[in-house]
Design a protein around this nucleic acid. Structure first.
Lengths: 248, 248
DNA sequence: GAATGTGAATTGGTTTTACCACTCGATGGG
DNA sequence: CCCATCGAGTGGTAAAACCAATTCACATTC
């Protein structure tokens, strides 16, 4: 029978009040808080959970579905439901939807990036390990190698910023940077028609890298600030171009 | 019969591929992107959506449940499902769960707050409207009034920072500040036993407010930085206290 | 006539049951 | 020894029925 024997709680659950699905969320949350579940662990099967918690399977599924939406769980068809592993990450989908709902502008996103990444670059300059530096350097060389391929260049651009965020040694800030960057990437991926002043851009990245490698927070912040200002300006002209094309 | 007549799409949906629930999410997302749905609008009933999209009701519910988890929709029992209104907000629950999963520390949260709020205070000093200033001032006076009530004081503390974030005129940054603050509030609410140097704290808030009112970004940033440093230090001693109590 | 109570219709929430699609490991044949 | 095959177990989908909360029109009452 291969019973996993993963009884999740001796007590049949004291049957709390409130929406049934929320109860499931709370139960799983409690298990995570109490250290009974770790990233990568597999949850009991839905039918099993239903029996243990005394809740019908659809309700169990409703609760799990919410946690999947939050990125806390990962459901694998035919295999099981697992606690998310890998680096922590906030759902960029959420921010993306918010942006569309409230009409958040690119200007605002650039400003948010500036606030976050300038300081993050400073922290990275203080704390970057040899491994961090290697990763960042690698992306810079990749950017040089893909100067003529906007799509590829964009990917390494994002990874460069992600690597710096990782080097800040603050997973929360790294996650926030990742979330905002992901939304911008999703939107730019489709509209990034022509090559701009990529050469100038990559040199700027180079400069940021050098400042971080030299452990000079001030320079790193200044360079990142200047870079984002230029990128913002470049984007605005790019936006103008595509706007013109539309009108042709 | 009061039929809302809200046919959501003429076409019976070209039956895209992929997980059924995801299709629902994409459909709703598309409706939001295309401007057919606005905050506060009511969606067709689940049974109606099921017919229109040619998907079973449980699958519809699965998709809606995910959007509810993301905070994009709000389901009201007996009434209907609505597009979220009010100010944009990211689910703090998500960050909270991440924190527990990956063991994110308070030190990291304080650092994230410092990165965010110091800059946000600067922006607020540049852009705060009269109304913004009034809201901020009100919270300061409330803090004076609740110096002897830690619970109440904490609430106005959070609102003070929220008001400043709003004054930055950047909803993305405001949302990020809100999310991080909410997680910290949830945790501190229970552990905030004794009154610390609240008097010193409120005077610091006062100083931040004055800098913003005077439209002096530099001073605002400096004051906010100092405030968060002190708050961080205060928290660490507070943490030490409760730790001692536990061991008694 | 206005305020109020009542009940039917509508809507999301829950349960039950059944079946489908995918995964993975055991089993057996090559 | 390797690989194909099969089956048990898993999440995904579907249908039907009922529960519970809300809403609003309508009748009742003051």
């Amino acid at each position: 029978m291969l019973k996993t024997k993963t009884t999740i709680s001796s007590e049949p659950v004291i049957s709390r009040n409130g929406p049934t699905a929320e109860q499931v969320v709370e139960q799983i949350r409690a298990l995570i808080s109490s250290g009974q579940l770790h990233p990568g662990d597999r949850l009991p099967a839905e039918r099993e959970l239903a029996k243990q918690l005394g809740i019908s399977r659809p309700s169990i599924r409703a609760g799990l579905r919410m946690l999947v939406a939050h990125g806390v769980l990962r459901a694998k068809h035919g295999s099981g439901t697992y606690i998310a592993d890998g680096p922590p990450s906030l759902d960029s989908e959420q921010l993306s939807l918010l942006a569309e709902l409230h009409g958040l502008t690119f200007d605002q996103m650039f400003e948010a990036r500036r606030v976050l990444e300038v300081q993050v670059a400073g922290l990275a300059a203080e704390r970057a390990t040899a491994e961090n530096l290697a990763t960042i350097a690698e992306e810079v060389t990749e950017m040089y190698a893909t100067l003529d391929n906007p799509q590829q260049y964009l990917i390494h651009d994002i990874r460069f910023h992600r690597a710096i965020a990782a080097a800040s040694a603050n997973p929360i800030l790294a996650t926030l940077v990742e979330m905002v960057s992901a939304v911008m990437y999703d939107r730019r991926r489709d509209t990034i028609g022509r090559a701009h002043d990529f050469k100038e851009s990559v040199e700027m990245h180079q400069r940021i890298y050098r400042a971080i490698r030299s452990h000079k927070p001030g320079e790193a912040r200044a360079a990142m600030h200047e870079h984002l200002e230029l990128a913002h300006k470049a984007y605005r002209t790019e936006e103008g171009e595509t706007e013109k094309k539309k009108r042709k």
